[in-house]
């Protein structure tokens, strides 16, 4: 089982977290088009390389965070970032 680097809890079993998906900004609901919105809803790039992902540390700190993972090699690139992409700070 993969270890996922939570910015607060350190590396944790992936079963302790939830992979939310690729991090993608939410289109403006007032101005979006069906094509753009459904791409946001359903489409993932899923590259055989690095991608930005949002994880939820379900059994640890309860925080959402963004990190980068190499989807072919299952490696993470540190450091993980806070929910808005900022570097993590320990509260």
């Amino acid at each position: 089982m993969l270890l996922v680097p939570c910015p607060n809890c350190g590396p944790r079993n992936s079963a302790d977290l939830t992979l939310v998906g690729e991090s993608e900004p939410r289109p403006d609901p007032a101005a979006t088009t069906p094509v753009e919105w459904r791409s946001y809803l359903y489409e993932e790039d899923n590259p055989a390389g690095w991608t930005r992902e949002t994880w939820y540390c379900r059994l640890g700190c309860g925080r959402f965070f963004v990190t980068e993972r190499h989807r072919a090699e299952n490696r993470f690139r540190n450091p993980p970032l806070g929910p808005s992409g900022e570097p993590p700070g320990r509260t």
Binding site: T18, V20, R26, T54, Y56, R58, G62, R63, F64, P83, S84
Partner: peptide, 13 residues
Amino acid sequence: EVWIQNWLQTEHP
């Protein structure tokens, strides 16, 4: 609970 936390933490911190 998770759905709401997601909105609060990622869209409206």
